[in-house]
Amino acid sequence: MSDTHSPHLAHHFDSPVQQFESGKLGMWIFLATEILLFGGLFCAYAVYRANHPEIFVYAHRYLDKTLGGINTAILIGSSFTMAWAVRAAQLGRQRALKVLLALTIACAFGFLGIKFVEYEHKWKEGLLWGKRYAPHAEGRAEPAADPAAAVAATPPAGVNAEEHTLIPPPARGPAGLAVSDHADERLHLEQEAPKNVQVFFSVYFAMTGLHGIHVIAGMALLGWILLRASRGEFGPDYFIPVDLAGLYWHLVDLIWIFLFPLLYLIH
């Protein structure tokens, strides 16, 4: 009374349909957990941006919009090849499936390569997170953020401060590195360097770093799928793994599509 027994049907499922639906529901729930994982960082972003918009407006100029834009295009392209790969699997076009999966992985490499270039720039310029934030200035030395000194700088008793002021650490924005064509604006920026610029870079590295880890995990996953595809395991009867890996990859792209404007395109 059982259905035609597919070799891919696990013993505790009654039918391939039930198995497929279970896998798909499981993947969607997993994606929900991923969104919530990033959700924490988006909340942190929202809290700090709401409290200190000047930091974000000031510091985002040190991110390279062009490289970020290229990366966005690459990821959107990879989503397209991924979706196409799923279609190829469903239609049983083995060669197309392999090529498209390989293309997707190549896009991921491209993305990480550009990300590496961006990170390297930040590293060289000292535009790093929290404690490591020590921007190199042209012409004058910038004091590094020293948490010990900042704690000591707690307003001593006797200061009658009214509102919830965060303690100002001695760090300042990187003078002279502003990417701007107008000297006036540049001068303006130097004067307006707000306190706690490192907060922006902490958020930037936390968000893009976690996203980068997800890209690497996605590449490993797609690599495994490609391996199985090259063994000819997938076809119209069995394409769940390709489909699920695709869902994961789209999520990774989607998160970047939110990260790009939030970090690079602030006004």
């Binding site: 929290g130 404690k131 306190k195 706690n196 490192q198 907060v199 902490s202």
Partner: peptide
């Protein structure tokens, strides 16, 4: 790494 998102000395909360 000293990211400082929760560290008041680094502007965190």
């Amino acid at each position: 790494l000293g990211v400082g998102i929760f560290d008041p000395a680094l502007g965190g909360d």
